[in-house]
Design a protein around this nucleic acid. Structure first.
Length: 830
RNA sequence: GCCGGAGUGGUGAAACUGGUAGACGCAGGGGACUCAAAAUCCCCCGGACCUCUGGUCCGUGUCGGUUCAAAUCCGACCUCCGGCACCA
């Protein structure tokens, strides 16, 4: 039997879509807007079917929305700067620019082969000067707003990539790219003050109702805000004091010692006064070395050392010993803590190890304290705390905080886990940071009108390992006149983290070629927030947090009218094979090219969408792909055998009353399918169940068409034509070439994507009859076919008078009869 | 350790606010067509049992509970996956 000529059809329609600009946006359209955005990819080379899934889900969604009547913005671009391009370029000895350009061409070709369509007139490429000019502009704006600053900081250094990494790029103490253990270095770096927006970033998460709950949770945990008190402890015998932060000021009377981080500046000063100076220094050096080697991360211990010094507990007036221990982190709070062993498990373990005093100051009302086996960290009644005795600990938090403030030795404050964003990279392939270092004026920003600061093409871009960017070797690039005094100065030779590039690209799509502004404020305000953002969960924290930050900044500057960029977020699952994520390095990739030449792009699309709900991971199965191909062939054959009937020119209105029973069944099945497929896709992009509904309809149509000869224009013919018409339109987002071709062969002249989705008629979405389930004591005992909508009382009577029910009930009397209309009757007997 | 998510046939998965568990596929078994194969079409396909054109019982990770009725709700636990992890 004839197979449909997928190769020929697909090439034909791909050419037509490109020529007619299927998804070309008309910004002046009166139709409601829909901004459907895919996370723009890193141009890493050839894509496998695992990558393909992302784009196919997005494309199916875009086509669906178009057919729902929206004016669609579906752009695509390239996150083209970054480490992998450079690493690969070094390996293959070609320029990163060429490598990137070649990959982009390959990937574009693949999108076309898959039938994935974008408005390519809006393509943006982050490594092009016309784009990164505005990334630099963004940096300058941040700088002028005081949100970009330079700080000598202990940074994560990857000895293999020879660059600094952001905290976010360090996974388990290793580089996220090459898994080399991270070293710590102390360098001058550029930071963006994301912490300035920490509260907004946290609070506005509540408004993101259409984001996956887990992404919201991950962001919330990442920011991790805690309210507390920063307080001052005088160091005995000196005129200095230690600042520490606590969320539990209510436990102050239980603070029997203090602990400072090995990196705390006070450690050296205190050590200098100690007779054990050498011993202390050696131990502290060891702590720091362990931390840098990542050892401390894997085996947390409550090791520490007494510093031969005491502080005064400002509430009890007691002298309490000061220890140094690596469990206190320099990066959080003040790098020093008041230790309350009775009510903090870490302090408890430390106190046990060094036999320090453990004083209970909170007693739970129900006697549930875990002391003396473990710290009691819950709420309770304040004891052993002078004037605060008898208070509830929750109230005591406020009372003690107020007391500190009243005495001027503490203040209420907020701490975040979120750190400022380190954005400078000692790498070549990125947007140069538009700053100049002048011996007389200091750090001077480049003038906006002098942007872009062009990345020089010819540079020995291999990394050096001396903490400097390859750009530092380019004398021509480096030396520049100071924008302020005109004297000889040097450019900053670092480039920006690529997450800066990707934090604003979705604004650029509205005016991709504007060379006088980064984005068109008016268009952006009309088209954003993005209606649907689609991408992988791996960006749940980094990219999405940075993009939110930058939009909040632009909002604060009055440059955009919204403060959240993405109204709705969808994170799709991965494609696995043999139980693990499909990837080149695992050697389990399936090439889309071979699959397409054998079975066609529509089959690949259909399979990918059918094999599971899009938010979940799917396991690739070559055999199941065949099943999808068979389905398309069946539909094709159905058309070929009945094309005279299905031809659009023979249509006529269907009069339901004149239909035969089998025609009514098919007619209703069609309405049911329309209803279900539209709901499944609209609801959560559940293409998998939508496709199974399409298969059901196709099965019904096939058996309908086999029972009798069908004449064009007859009731049977009109009903079949109606069903086919609906099926083809409903399938179009999933199998676009296939649907376009059949649509054309039905006699239509335009594109199916200029059509609307069929709409269900509520009176026909249910079946005319249904099988009433009759249960006795919740066990199914009989089924009876009855008309839909039969009244509850009638259903009750049907059930009770059923022959089999009577037999089974015998002389027993129903105690209760539960009737669920259009479903079942449950007769309860005891 | 804390915070999320998930456990359903041989397999991918369905099951809308509790109401027929396993739709729709894949694999498998049997048959038709064919010299044969491919393709296509038809039938069977969770388990156990019985007096086998039918019927009974069991079955959605485990154990309890609520309910006429639980994959679905509640409680405890087990396993897997993801995120965070000495955050004061």
């Amino acid at each position: 039997m004839s197979k449909y000529p997928h190769g020929e059809i697909e090439k034909k329609w791909q050419a037509i879509w490109a020529e007619t600009g299927l998804f070309r946006l008309d910004t002046r359209s009166a139709r409601p807007k829909y901004y459907c955005l895919m996370m723009f990819p890193y141009p890493s080379g050839e894509l496998h079917v695992g990558h393909g899934r992302n784009y196919i889900i997005g494309d199916a969604l875009a086509r669906f929305k178009k057919m729902e009547g929206y004016e669609l913005l579906a752009p695509m671009g390239w996150d083209a700067f970054g480490l992998p391009a450079e690493n690969a370029a070094i390996q293959h000895d070609i320029h990163p620019a060429k490598w990137t350009r070649d990959n982009i061409a390959k990937m574009k070709r693949q999108f076309i082969d898959w039938g994935v369509v974008y408005d390519w007139t809006r393509e943006v490429t982050s490594c092009q000067p016309e784009y990164y000019k505005w990334t630099q502009w963004l940096f300058l704006r941040l700088y002028h707003a005081g949100l970009a600053y330079r700080k000598a900081a202990s940074v994560n250094w990857c000895p293999s990539c020879k660059t600094v990494l952001a905290n976010e790029q360090v996974i388990d103490g290793q580089c996220e790219r090459c898994c080399t253990p991270i070293e710590e270095r102390y360098l001058e770096q550029w930071f963006l003050k994301i912490t300035e927006f920490a509260d907004k970033l946290l609070e506005e998460l509540d408004g993101l109702k259409e984001w996956p709950e887990r992404v919201i949770t991950m962001q919330r945990n990442w920011i991790d805000r805690s309210f507390g008190v920063q307080m001052e402890f005088r160091i005995k015998g000196t005129d200095r004091s230690l600042q520490c932060f606590t969320t539990r000021p209510d436990t102050i009377y239980g603070a029997t010692f203090m602990v400072v981080s090995p990196e705390h500046p006070e450690v050296a000063r205190l050590a200098a006064r100690s007779p054990r100076q050498k011993e202390i220094r050696r131990a502290v050096d060891q702590f720091i070395a362990d931390k840098r080697s990542g050892k401390a991360r894997t085996e947390p211990s409550k090791e520490g050392l007494f510093l031969d010094a005491y502080a005064e507990n400002p509430m009890t007036g007691e002298d309490i010993p000061i220890y140094v221990a690596p469990y206190v982190l320099m990066e959080y709070g003040t790098g020093a803590i008041m230790a309350v062993p009775a009510h903090d498990q870490r302090d408890f373990e430390f106190a046990q190890r060094y036999h320090l005093q453990i004083r209970e100051v909170i007693r739970p009302a129900d006697g549930s304290s875990t002391l003396p086996q473990a710290a009691y960290v819950g709420e309770g009644l304040i004891v052993n705390s002078g004037p605060f005795n008898g208070l509830d600990s929750r109230d005591a938090i406020q009372s003690v905080a107020s007391e500190f403030e009243a005495r001027g030795i503490g203040r209420r404050t907020v701490n975040y886990r979120l750190r400022d964003w380190l954005v400078s990279r000692q790498r070549y392939w990125g947007a140069p940071i538009p700053m100049v270092h002048c011996p007389s004026c200091g750090v001077v920003p480049v003038d906006e009108k002098d942007l872009p600061v062009l990345l020089p093409e010819v540079v020995d871009f291999r990394p050096r390992g001396d903490g400097k960017s390859p750009l530092a070797t380019n004398e021509k690039f480096r030396s520049v006149a100071c924008p302020k005094c005109g004297g000889p100065a040097e450019r900053d030779t670092d480039t920006m983290d690529t997450f800066v590039d990707s934090s604003w690209y979705f604004l650029r799509y509205l005016s991709p070629h504007a060379d006088e502004k980064p984005f068109d404020g008016e268009l952006v305000n009309r088209w954003l927030p993005v209606d649907q953002y689609v991408g992988g969960v791996e960006h749940a924290i980094l990219h999405l947090l940075y993009a939110r930050f930058i939009v909040k900044f632009l909002h604060a500057q009055g440059l955009v009218g919204f403060s959240e960029p993405f109204a709705r977020l969808f994170t799709q699952g991965m494609v696995c094979k043999d139980g693990v994520k499909m990837s080149k390095s695992k050697g389990n990739v399936v090439s889309p090219d071979t699959l397409i030449s054998r079975l066609g792009a529509d089959t690949m699309r259909l399979y990918i969408l059918f094999s599971g709900p899009p938010e979940r991971d799917i396991e690739w199965n070559d055999e199941s792909v065949e099943g999808c191909h068979r389905f398309l062939n069946r539909v094709w054959r159905l058309f070929c055998e009945h094309n005279d009937v299905i031809d659009q020119s023979v249509t006529g209105a269907i009069k339901y009353d004149t239909l035969s029973e089998s025609e009514r069944v098919l007619f209703r099945k069609t309405h049911w399918t329309i209803d279900r497929m539209l709901a499944d896709i609209a609801d959560n992009f559940h293409f998998n169940t939508a496709i199974s509904a399409a298969m059901e309809l196709s099965n019904t149509m096939t058996s309908f068409a086999e029972t009798a000869a069908i004449a064009p224009g007859s009731n049977a013919g009109k009903t079949l034509r109606f069903a086919f018409d609906a099926l083809i339109r409903l399938l179009a987002p999933m199998t676009p070439h296939f649907s376009e071709e059949l649509w054309r062969r039905m006699g239509h002249t335009g594109s199916i994507f200029d059509e609307r989705m069929p709409q269900p008629d509520a009176c026909y979405v249910t079946r005319e009859t249904f099988d009433l389930v009759i249960q006795i004591n919740s066990k199914i005992r009989a089924r009876v076919c009855v008309p839909a909508g039969t009244a509850a009382e009638d259903l009750r009577q049907i059930a009770l008078s059923n022959q089999r029910v009577k037999e089974l009930l015998a002389d027993k009397h129903p105690q209760q009869v539960i009737v669920i209309p259009d479903k079942l009757v449950n007769i309860v007997v005891r």
